[in-house]
């Protein structure tokens, strides 16, 4: 790989470094400030924090906050599993077989990324109401809505996994007498594990951080934590809200650190083509 000609430039390169530092401050500042104000001794959003107190963090375990947090985790888990069950076979069919309408089906399965999720939520709301399926609001309707917005990630990541694995390994196993189901279990699935993990991770984060679908398909008992936060902001500031916000940020972070030994996140974000 060629050495960049820009890197050794002294003054402009140092200027760029300073600019980059400012951009990182801009990107991370609000989140860090939110974390800091949750330790205020008073119930105001003073920054820098006045005094130090953990009392607001104790309230995170109040059912008012812990229930929506737990519900969001359940919802994200269910949505991720359902997206994998639907998305992985779909990707397999699209990558491995040629059939009429294949290109159109691929575009269709990725199209929820292009249409605003808000509108996907509204459409589902209206259709479920018209069909008299209002009883589905809450967990079932939310899972359906989240699967729609998560599916493109699973399909795309599984397709990348299938596209980059050496297909001859499967032929070799078959020619040595392995049955198709053995090949799938022993050869294909282990080889595309990275793609499946990447898809599942993106799906989980997508579901856990969504608010657009939750806005329309929640019920009084089943409300994701993002919506609880959104509704609560109207009533003004409380450091507990800041603490809950920090918790919702830590959960995906821990998940990502836990799964990163199974796949390189960067490969799936910037595309794995052109990397050999």
């Amino acid at each position: 790989m060629g050495r960049s000609v820009f890197r050794r430039a002294t003054l402009p390169w140092w200027g760029l470094r300073l600019l980059v530092l400012l951009i990182y401050v801009f990107m991370l500042g609000p989140i860090l400030i939110t974390a800091a104000v949750s330790f205020n001794a008073s119930n105001q959003s003073r920054f820098p924090p006045v005094g130090f107190s953990l009392q607001w963090w104790g309230q995170v375990f109040d059912p008012r906050w812990i229930d929506p947090l737990v519900f969001s985790l359940q919802l994200a888990t269910a949505s991720t599993l359902a997206s994998l069950l639907l998305g992985a076979p779909l990707a397999f069919g699209l990558v491995r077989y040629r059939f009429p309408g294949r290109a159109a089906l691929l575009a269709f399965s990725l199209s929820p990324l292009i249409l605003p999720a808000l509108v996907t939520g509204i459409g589902l709301l209206l259709v479920l109401q018209l069909l008299g399926l209002g009883g589905l609001f809450g967990l079932p309707a939310l899972v359906i809505g989240h699967v729609i917005i998560c599916l493109p990630f699973v399909v795309r990541m599984t397709a990348i996994g299938l596209g980059t694995m050496p297909i001859r390994v499967e032929d070799a196993a078959l020619s040595l007498g392995a049955t198709p189901s053995v090949v799938l279990r022993e050869i294909t699935l282990p080889l595309i594990k990275g793609g499946l993990f990447a898809g599942a991770t993106f799906a989980f984060i997508q579901s856990f951080t969504d608010y657009s679908i939750g806005l329309f398909l929640s019920s009084a008992q089943h409300r994701p934590v993002t919506l609880t936060i959104l509704n609560f902001i109207e009533f003004g500031f409380t450091p507990t809200l800041a603490a809950v916000a920090v918790v919702t940020l830590v959960i995906p972070l821990v998940l990502l650190l836990a799964v990163q030994r199974f796949f390189r996140v960067g490969d799936f974000i910037f595309g794995s083509s052109g990397r050999g």
């Binding site: 856990f208 919506l227 916000a245 919702t248 995906p252 990502l256």
Partner: peptide, 8 residues
Amino acid sequence: PLLASVVV
């Protein structure tokens, strides 16, 4: 930042 909800 993509790990945090837009709401947060």
